[in-house]
């Protein structure tokens, strides 16, 4: 199991802030593909991925228990 976190426009598109996904092994890219397929109405072109609260490249391995967050372009300040 991994824990997915959505924010801003993606949270609205998904209709939820988080969900769990059954998971054995794979990369951040694999998780992204699953989320893209689940919420095709959202534009993922500028979305970054964070695993356990750190930005990662899509090649990063994702392990059971990890928290994977999808970060649309930020606009704090």
């Amino acid at each position: 199991m991994i824990y997915l976190h959505y924010f801003a426009g993606l949270k609205e598109a998904a209709g939820k802030a988080e969900e769990e996904l059954a998971w054995e092994s794979g990369t951040a890219s694999d998780v992204l593909q699953w989320v893209k397929t689940s919420y095709p109405q959202f534009d993922f072109s500028a979305v970054q991925i964070a695993v356990n609260e750190e930005y990662v490249l899509e090649s990063e391995p994702v392990h059971p228990g990890d928290h994977v967050a999808f970060i649309p372009p930020v606009s704090g300040g």
């Binding site: 924010f7 801003a8 426009g9 500028a46 970054q48 964070a50 750190e54 930005y55 990662v56 490249l57 990063e60 967050a69 970060i71 649309p72 372009p73 930020v74 606009s75 704090g76 300040g77």
Partner: peptide
């Protein structure tokens, strides 16, 4: 880099703001 998002609410609509295109250069960090 800080995961914070701003939504502007106008009289006739609203939109999440986020126009910068930062990409991580070397993975973690």
């Amino acid at each position: 880099v800080v995961p914070i998002w701003k939504k502007e609410i106008w009289e006739d609509g609203e939109e999440w703001i986020g126009d910068q295109a930062y990409k991580p250069e070397g993975g973690k960090g």
